[in-house]
């Protein structure tokens, strides 16, 4: 049960985090603008902040009287203490990793190849679609897998925003904690085994994706 919930949350979080992550990566790799380093630092903050601090900030944002709370907006976003809260928390925690990996992926694409595309008659959007995106493909896939893995293991922010409700918001990471707390060591071991296997596959595929391909796949 916790496994499926975890997969669902992590997948949803990956879907949520990829567009802004890729956009930020592109921005950081290709543009210079005032306040760039400030924005970059902000985007990377969840990487170093204690997850519980991020969770607290989200909670403050979404609490009834917070800027995005039900009383301020006039309706309830229904995020707190639901699986959507887990998605939100883990995608925010995954954002730095995704943005950073995407940035590196885009930096690996020579701007001169993009210029070449322009001289051949492609507009900027077409260049992005025909040249930048295909050439950064492997790195972006790696960004996705890393984001997924990060979301899968997320604990601190999730427990604050979504709570630890078995069957509803209790993901693998939370379930392990739970089982340990109440002394169900065997269940905990099983769950640890499952997460280890998932993590192994994820890290291995990232290594595979980021290795320089000798020829096209």
């Amino acid at each position: 049960m916790a496994l499926f919930l975890s997969l669902k949350v992590a997948l949803a979080a990956t879907v949520v985090v990829l567009p802004p992550g890729i956009l930020l990566g592109l921005l950081f790799a290709r543009r210079s603008f005032p306040g760039k380093s400030a924005l970059e630092t902000m985007a990377y903050l969840p990487l170093v902040l204690p997850p519980t601090a991020v969770g607290y900030l989200l909670l403050a944002l979404l609490a009834r009287d917070g800027p995005l709370g039900s009383r301020t907006l006039g309706f309830d976003l229904d995020i707190l203490l639901s699986w959507k809260g887990a998605v939100l928390a883990s995608s925010l925690m995954a954002l730095p990793l995704v943005a950073r990996t995407a940035r590196i992926a885009f930096e690996g694409v020579s701007p001169r190849l993009e210029s070449m595309g322009r001289t051949l008659g492609m507009g900027p959007l077409r260049v992005f679609k025909e040249i930048t995106l295909p050439l950064a493909r492997r790195g972006l896939l790696a960004a996705g897998v890393l984001g997924f893995s990060r979301a899968l293991g997320e604990f601190g922010a999730t427990v604050i925003v979504a709570g630890n409700i078995p069957g509803k918001t209790q993901t693998l990471a939370l379930a392990i904690f739970n089982d340990l707390q109440i002394g169900r060591d065997e269940e905990a071991q099983l769950l640890v085994g499952i997460t280890a296997a998932l993590a192994f596959v994820a890290v291995w595929s990232v290594e595979f994706l980021l290795r320089r391909p000798r020829s096209r796949a």
Binding site: M116, G117, L120, M122, G123, I131, L135
Partner: peptide
């Protein structure tokens, strides 16, 4: 650049590595 209609052959060729020879030749079809 895309509005000028130049055929630029740079010193280092700058072929698109994700396309084969024909794919490169067709890159200017836009």
């Amino acid at each position: 650049p895309e509005g000028r209609g130049v055929g630029y052959v740079p010193q280092d060729a700058l072929l698109f590595p994700h396309r084969n020879v024909l794919g490169n030749l067709l890159a200017g079809a836009w």
